[in-house]
């Protein structure tokens, strides 16, 4: 059975004159036990989608089900069986770690002991601080506690809205390791992130921009669909190199990418020598050019360009 099924979902904000379509007829479905990623920047519509699926917000059009239950008609059934970790920390700051967890267990008529095996691997990392108030925890620890609280009633579908935003690289890596562990226990997960590199951790991803889904596929397939040769170029003067490459007549697109610029050409025959010749004529030194494998961020930018 599908864990989540979304069909032509629409959400509009604002009055008549200035309306914003936060969700513009989006459709997708996820399988049970699947880790499905919604990848997109702020304003893509991720949070509206999560709030509708967790019955916190009513859609303006289309339909959606979670575990077969309708997000409008079966609100109570959905609330009983999903776990939701909102993007903004929303536990009780003046309760301790343990009190928060007990509270969430009890409102779902269960206890910490009953589902301890599910949260154990995560909870042991913060157990040392179980008497500390939630408001006094570091970002990484708050995130772990919030995940425990979203899990303590053994949800069948887990919704994580930007769990890694603003968190450093180390905590981000740890968090994804925890999610992999949960996936092994058969929980369906819908997770959103603005960090493109995290797409690789998901079974499938939807790349979202301005209320629309640009593509849905496995991360591997998204990358294969890039379909063009990607060049990585660098020189002694990176900013001037970027400007010169953008001005080059055979350039289709050029973006900074870490220590290289990523370049796609209109016509790729004999290109390497031609690019080198052009850059030499512009006075660039220490030029290096090589082919590179595109990643999700390259694909995202290409799709944004195609949809512009």
């Amino acid at each position: 059975m599908e864990a989540i099924a979304v069909h032509k979902l629409v959400k509009t904000y604002g009055a008549k004159k200035e309306t914003v379509k936060a969700l513009n007829e989006i459709s997708f479905s996820t399988q049970q036990g699947e880790m499905f990623g919604v990848i997109g920047p702020d304003g893509a519509g991720k949070t509206s989608l999560f709030r509708i699926l967790t019955t916190m917000l009513l859609p303006d059009g289309g339909t959606a089900t979670v575990d077969g239950f309708d997000v409008v008609k079966d609100m109570q059934q959905i609330r009983n069986r999903v776990g939701y970790m909102p993007g903004k920390f929303s536990l009780y700051q003046d309760l301790t770690v343990e009190e928060n967890l007990e509270f969430f267990a009890s409102i779902f008529n269960t206890s910490i002991a009953e589902n301890y095996d599910l949260v154990k691997d995560i909870y042991v990392q913060i157990e040392l601080f179980k008497n500390r108030r939630a408001g006094k925890l570091s970002g990484g620890m708050k995130q772990k506690l919030a995940l425990c609280c979203a899990l303590i009633h053994k949800p069948s579908v887990l919704f994580l809205d930007e769990p890694t935003t603003g968190v450093d690289v180390v905590s981000r890596k740890e968090f994804w390791e925890m999610l992999k562990g949960l996936k092994k226990q058969g929980i369906s997960i819908l997770v959103s992130t603005p960090y493109m590199d995290e797409a690789a951790m998901c079974d499938r991803v939807a790349l979202m921009q301005s209320g629309r889904i640009m593509t849905i596929d496995t991360p591997q397939h998204v990358i294969e669909q890039f379909g063009k040769r990607l060049w990585a170029v660098r020189s002694g003067e990176m900013y001037r190199l970027l400007l010169d490459l953008k001005a080059y007549e055979n350039t289709l697109s050029c973006h900074s990418f870490g220590e290289y610029h990523h370049l796609v050409l209109r016509n790729d025959t004999g290109s390497e020598a031609a690019v080198l010749h052009y850059l030499a004529s512009k006075g660039h030194r220490q030029v290096e050019i090589k082919t590179a494998s595109p990643n999700i961020e390259d694909c995202f930018m290409q799709l944004m360009n195609d949809n512009a």
């Binding site: 997109g40 893509a44 603003g166 900013y239 930018m301």
Partner: peptide, 24 residues
């Protein structure tokens, strides 16, 4: 201080172009 959190990858790069320009 973390100027580019949350923006799309194209805008993030446009932002960095402004940084380069200022440094120049």
């Amino acid at each position: 201080d973390e100027p580019t959190g949350g923006v799309d990858p194209v805008t993030r790069r446009e932002f960095w172009n402004l940084i380069y320009e200022a440094a120049e």
